[in-house]
Nucleic acid binder design. Structure first.
Lengths: 215, 215
DNA sequence: CGTACGATGTTACTAGCGGTAACCCGAAGT
DNA sequence: ACTTCGGGTTACCGCTAGTAACATCGTACG
């Protein structure tokens, strides 16, 4: 059992190597998009394919490892925005802005995270059909649901409401952000304001058009 | 230029054939998911690959043709729900319900439409980077934006607001629907009600928890 | 009637992908 | 000295999307 010295050194070495490989992979993914090939990644790292497979198992494993870092970073950002001690409206706007700033400043990372072709979530029980992508969105939704549950008094059944709202708001953020990133129809501040207005019930209070068949 | 007779007959024949091929493709896609191979589709149709390529150009073309039908059908459904002469809240709920009913009753079609691996949108000008999937969501968002613009009096800059809201609401519907379809945490009616509440500004009016650091 | 055309269909192939088996080598441990 | 083991390579498998070349049948036209 006296392998701590060697084993420890080895482990740190392999982890360093792993990080190097991940950085090379990131460079290639940023250059070639989500369909970067293992050959290209291996070449960028100065090695050949089997090493990648030894480290990450399969392509999904590499992509998951690669995604985890950015996912964690983004989640941390959003968590701080969500914890700011300000008015609720300001907090919501800050969170939206943090997300949009992230996807705006690194659109290639965003596209990679959101559309990882498809990977399976491993040997999961149940759910035999139809697993696809975007575990990030699920994590975001659950995280937001937790915050909502903690902060708001939603009464009985509030936990369900919080989860619905969490995933709904995240979906809204994602959908609008995706469209905005592609078309750039306005500034980030404007987008944040419009979305916050929507969440603040403007859709319900705005008047009908006078000329149309208003209902 | 007198080829109308033959040409017409031929065209109808080829279109019939095309429909047959599409139906075979649909059967396979429904069975094998979005990564159905061209070989499998051709085999199901009783032919071989090159014919598929003659009819649809490439795999993206086949998938686009296949997606178009369902997309149109879904859009038509939502349009009728969106045009119902009832209160705005009821109309919103009906639209949400129509969407959720569609994805609930045909989840495989839904997954195929939403995650078509990745296809390029053809020789499009501009947008050299980052095209991915889900043109359906964009169409939905734009359609909803049109309805909002037509119906609501949003004042100056209202067109932008309508588009933001359209894509935001569609994103909310999509995100929540995707999560709901996977976890089935509640009935469709409950989900619709919660989402409509969210759009009706409940997030802004609900009270803080008394025990937490409410802001 | 013959013939040229056009659409339908096939076989056989290329190029590249993810993934793997077999082997190689140099540095540590006893 | 000799074994063990992790990092690395070559060469391969099975599969995919996509294509070139060839065969076949029906129909329009001289």
């Amino acid at each position: 059992m006296e392998r701590t010295k060697r084993s420890g050194r080895q482990q740190s070495a392999t982890e360093r190597r792993r990080r190097e490989l991940l950085e090379a992979a990131e460079r290639i993914v940023l250059r070639d998009g989500p369909d970067a090939s293992m050959n290209a990644i291996a070449a960028e790292a100065g090695i050949t394919k089997p090493i990648l497979y030894r480290h990450f198992g399969d392509k999904g494993g590499l992509y998951r490892a690669l995604a985890l870092r950015h996912t964690d970073a983004l989640l941390a950002n959003l968590a701080t925005a969500l914890d700011a001690p300000v008015l609720r409206r300001d907090r919501v706007e800050a969170t939206l802005d943090a997300y949009l700033l992230a996807i705006e400043s690194q659109p290639q990372v965003y596209r990679f995270l959101m559309h990882p072709s498809d990977e399976d979530t491993g040997p999961e029980t149940g759910f035999d059909v139809g697993r696809h992508s975007a575990p990030l969105l699920r994590r975001l939704g659950e995280e937001l649901a937790k915050v909502i549950t903690d902060r708001l008094d939603l009464g009985p059944g509030g936990e369900l409401t919080a989860r619905v709202w969490g995933h709904g708001i995240v979906g809204m953020m994602h959908g609008a952000g995706d469209w905005w990133l592609r078309e750039r129809p306005c500034s980030r501040e404007q987008l944040v304001k419009q979305l916050a207005d929507l969440l603040w019930g403007q859709l319900a209070t705005v008047e009908d058009r006078e000329d149309g068949p208003g209902f």
